[in-house]
């Protein structure tokens, strides 16, 4: 596999369960020996995800989300709750053996988030990795990431915030008292900085989204020293994504109680 180019996939906006299903399907492909994949995507409609270990009732105002028809989906990756609205989401699936730095969780966040930070910085912003799993600009978070591992392969996905509807973020995501104590009583909406706050309305232009997708894919190619060629999900990957969207990420037992159905 050493000479096989990696795959770069830009998928159209999709609902949350499908987005999470396709990321997991790509992880399964890579764990099964397929070439590593970098993917960029968006969310339509907007959705909320929570980390694998989180209690949705504690993290999310479920009544507010239900009132607005916003799905709450449990990820297979750890980390925190996210309101996915106007953002670019990246994901990368690759074998642990692609680089020695990937063996440890801390080293892999450093390497992968570092690549994304360099891509964001190409827009003229000074973005940097902030452990455990964030990318910050001027002390505020522009990107958060999460990962899981399966069969010797890593899936890491994360957001790049393009615009922030802080009123909706605050309406859906509950501020944790312990976190707020540490960070000057700021809630989730105050701790973030979207691209629009940094480069103005240019952040919302379709060309900026395309530029950022290309920069992220190019940055991973440079970081790992590999060619990444434009690609699409295979038929089996799309079918698996749809099945996971229905049977896992659309399943109430999984989303509310972390009870995994047979797949």
């Amino acid at each position: 596999m050493s000479d096989t180019p990696w795959r770069g996939i830009i998928t159209p906006p999709a609902p949350g369960p499908y987005n999470m299903g396709l990321d997991y399907a790509l992880l399964e492909s890579v764990a099964g020996g397929s070439a590593p994949v970098v993917r960029c995507y968006r969310w339509a409609p907007c959705a909320i995800t929570i980390g694998y270990f989180q209690d949705p009732e504690r993290e999310v105002d479920l009544a507010a989300a239900a009132r607005d028809g916003v799905a709450v989906i449990r990820r297979v990756t750890g980390g925190g709750a996210v309101f996915h609205d106007c953002e670019l989401t990246y994901s990368i699936a690759l074998p642990e053996r692609a680089s020695p730095e990937l063996r440890s969780i801390a080293g892999s966040y450093d390497m992968i988030c570092g690549a994304v930070a360099r891509a964001i910085s190409r827009l003229g912003i000074d973005a940097s990795f902030a452990p455990v799993n964030d990318i910050i600009v001027g002390g505020r978070k522009i990107s958060g990431s999460a990962q899981t591992r399966c069969g010797g392969a890593i899936l890491q996905h994360g957001t790049v915030l393009i615009d922030a509807d802080r009123a909706r973020m605050s309406a859906y995501l509950r501020a944790d008292p312990e976190k707020s104590r540490e960070r000057d009583a700021a809630g989730p909406a105050e701790r973030v900085v979207p691209l629009r706050d940094l480069i103005g309305d240019r952040a919302l232009a379709p060309e900026t989204y395309s530029t950022l997708c290309d920069a992220i894919i190019g940055s991973f190619a440079g970081t790992f020293g590999r060619a990444i060629e434009p690609s699409s999900p295979t038929g089996p990957e799309s079918q698996r994504a749809a099945a996971l969207a229905r049977d896992l990420f659309g399943d109430d037992d999984w989303n509310a109680r972390r009870i995994r159905p047979p797949l």
Binding site: G51, F53, Q54, D55, T77, G78, G79, I105, N133, R149
Partner: peptide
């Protein structure tokens, strides 16, 4: 529960 990472989950 929480927003931490443990692998395997």
């Amino acid at each position: 529960t929480g927003d931490f990472f443990i692998m395997p989950e």
